[in-house]
Amino acid sequence: MSCPNDADLIRLLAGELDDGPSQNIRRHLTHCRACAATLAELQITWQVLAAGDEEEVTSDLWPAVRLAAEREAMRPTVWVPRTPPALLRAAASIAVALGLGWLAGSWVGQPAGRVSQPNGTVPEEELIEALGLDELAALSATGLPETWLSTDQQPTEDAG
């Protein structure tokens, strides 16, 4: 058998090894001085450590525990909602987002006083007004807006 590791020696000291492995290590220790020396050192530590143990404790915990338990029993129970599972939270978020989107869409798309056509379309004049297109005049043949051409800057025939 090869040399046992420290963990095996600790287990041997603590009596945690089964008979088979324990016997194997013992046989090995009879002819391996290095392992026997390591075990001897460990054994001294093992024995010395017991000297640092705490003594028996005799405190009576019951009065303090009873007081705390009774105080807890008298405290009104507060309902704390449990956190829903992640999937449920994700589904709820999507539903809320869709709902808000639908509401926003219907609010923007239906200005007050709008009269819809029977087929659901918006009258052309109303649409032009809503988009502010009525401010723009149709372009003339020169490419300039006719509103501009009709201002005072327009050259008159008698100017020349």
């Binding site: 420290d6 075990l39 001897a40 050192e41 460990l42 054994q43 001294i44 530590t45 024995q47 450590l49």
Partner: peptide, 19 residues
């Protein structure tokens, strides 16, 4: 246990081999 072996070596009993 390796650390304790070093730290507690001075407390080892002077006589007798370990059990």
């Amino acid at each position: 246990y390796r650390q304790l072996r070093r730290d507690l070596a001075h407390l080892a009993p002077k006589t007798g081999a370990p059990a």
